[in-house]
Computed example of a mutant assay.
Amino acid sequence: MPLAEIPLCVWRKRSRTFVFQGQTIRYWVAGQGEPLLLIHGFPTASWDWHYLWQPLAQRYRVIACDMLGFGDSAKPLNHRYSLLEQADLQQALLSHLQVEQPVHVLAHDYGDSVAQELLARHYEARIVVASCVFLNGGLFPETHRPLLMQKLLLSPLGWLLGRAFSREALVKGFQRIFGPQTQPSESELDDFWSLVDSNRGPRIMHKLITYIPERRVQRERWVAAMQRGDVPLRVVDGAVDPISGVHMVERYRELIPDADTVVLPGIGHYPQIEAPVQVLEHYLAFRTHLVLPPRKVACS
Rank of each mutant, 00 (worst) to 15 (best):
P202C: 09
S187W: 05
L195I: 05
E168G: 06
G173A: 09
L189Y: 10
G201C: 08
R176D: 08
K172Y: 03
I177Q: 05
K207T: 08
A169W: 08
G201V: 03
F174G: 02
Q181L: 11
R163K: 15
R176Y: 04
A169I: 04
G201W: 06
Q181P: 00
I209A: 09
S185G: 11
P202H: 08
N199W: 02
I209D: 10
L160R: 13
I177E: 07
E188C: 02
F165C: 07
R203L: 12
R203D: 13
M205T: 04
L189T: 02
G201N: 06
W193S: 05
S198P: 00
D190Y: 05
D190Q: 12
L208N: 03
I209C: 07
S185R: 03
F192P: 00
L208P: 01
F174Q: 11
L170R: 00
Y211K: 01
E214W: 03
L195E: 11
R200I: 00
S198M: 10
Y211R: 01
F165W: 08
M205S: 04
S198H: 15
L170W: 02
S185K: 08
D191P: 00
S198F: 14
I204F: 08
H206Y: 14
T210S: 07
I209G: 06
L160Q: 13
E186S: 13
L189R: 01
L195S: 07
L208C: 04
K207L: 12
I209F: 09
L208Y: 03
V196M: 10
I177N: 04
R167L: 13
V171F: 03
V171G: 00
G173H: 04
S194E: 15
K172E: 12
E186A: 15
Q183G: 03
L161W: 15
G179Q: 08
F178G: 01
R163G: 14
F178C: 14
P184Y: 11
P180R: 10
S194M: 09
S166N: 06
G179V: 06
D197L: 14
R176C: 03
R203A: 14
L195R: 14
L160F: 14
S166I: 06
T182V: 10
Q175A: 06
E188A: 15
R200T: 09
I209S: 08
S185H: 08
I204C: 08
R176K: 14
P180A: 12
E186F: 07
S187D: 14
R203Q: 15
F178W: 10
V171S: 01
F174T: 00
S194T: 13
T210M: 12
P180Y: 11
S198G: 05
R167S: 10
H206W: 14
L170T: 00
G179K: 03
R203I: 13
F178D: 02
